[in-house]
Design a protein around this nucleic acid. Sequence first.
DNA 1: TTTATTAAGTGAAACTGTTCACATTAACTA
DNA 2: TAGTTAATGTGAACAGTTTCACTTAATAAA
Lengths: 213, 213
Amino acid sequence: MHGDMIIRITKYYRILHKLKSLGLERVFANNLGDAAGVNATVVRKDFSLLKIIGQKRGGYEIDNLIASLDKILGKDKPQEAIIVGCGRIGGALMRYRGFASDGIKIVAGLDINTHVCDEQECPIPIYPLEQLEEIVKKKNIQVAILTVPEQEASDLFRRLCEAGVRGFLNFTPIGLKASKDEEDKHIIIHNVNIALELEQIFYELNISDNHML
Amino acid sequence: MHGDMIIRITKYYRILHKLKSLGLERVFANNLGDAAGVNATVVRKDFSLLKIIGQKRGGYEIDNLIASLDKILGKDKPQEAIIVGCGRIGGALMRYRGFASDGIKIVAGLDINTHVCDEQECPIPIYPLEQLEEIVKKKNIQVAILTVPEQEASDLFRRLCEAGVRGFLNFTPIGLKASKDEEDKHIIIHNVNIALELEQIFYELNISDNHML
DNA sequence: TTTATTAAGTGAAACTGTTCACATTAACTA
DNA sequence: TAGTTAATGTGAACAGTTTCACTTAATAAA
């Protein structure tokens, strides 16, 4: 399970859709590699691993590729998520239009205050936090975006886990960990820590400066 | 420059501050590793590489450690950034209070509409986009957060580069690349692609399901 | 003191991911 | 049809990280 492969696959997927919309029918590992910023061999190795075969000298058929990646990325099933915490960032994400083009649908928001989002601007319903378990089970939610204040993060994480959510996009600075008493193996957590990203940038600039002199 | 080391350092840094606020004076590689989710040997290797030395049997002195990491992370210099594009996400970030505790200060916003942010809620001034170059140079800005619509991303990125910005936190789905005609080496770009993160989560859930049966 | 213990420090092994080099196959060319 | 070219496919070399196993130093205990 090569770590970065997932990221590359999603990149390939986007590039392929763009190429298709341009009218192309086949693509070479070389071009795909250039567009994704990786070596052509990496592309071939990835596809080889995924049992996707191309044609010697003819490259890969874009339609076939997209169909394969659709399946690998789970695009054949509905990709639905909820947003827990509809404050500043959560609210911004509720109004974000970019998910639809990736086949992702935000089906509900959860918040203490159910009126944080004005109806016309965002047509996604917002429910009170008490209904969390009910909503998750009724709508069979697998993925949650966690955009709540820091101090509520681990509590809500636990509740969501217990309700059956298995994928988390965590915007809180808390490092969430699946507890060992549950079968922790199948909980996927991605952390987006904006302050941490900035810190890294400052660090990298700093060492790049130091190396120069 | 070991890739993930930077991320680990910032994690250590946060943990150390928490431990310090709890009154601890020394810390062992083992504990730090547990908290950061890595092996104790990794911690020691990291510190060894950074010329940070501990005491055999006594662990590391937290104050010393923090002081060292302060310098390594560039916390001895002011860490200032601007937000370019004060729409939904940019606006949310302007009102985000978490930066200050990490020593990061957002000193200005740039937007077509200079009245997107109501004064009382966010005390950071917002300037029109035309003043971008002026602001960057006057305030000697090194880092910019890019939260503009997709189609304006690469144009603004270029303008920011030319004005002297060297670090970017890019929230647009565009994959920014430093052009080769400039000395591209010293431009640091971090991409935060929320839709892509979600896609990865769905993918990982998908393969985890497939592996189970 | 001497002995035992604890944790840092580090060379070497093991592992992971990337790149190279080349075999393979399909299409084009003469 | 034979030869050339262009691209895939993959074993092997390589590089970078992580982990292991061991040494070293400091403290505590006997």
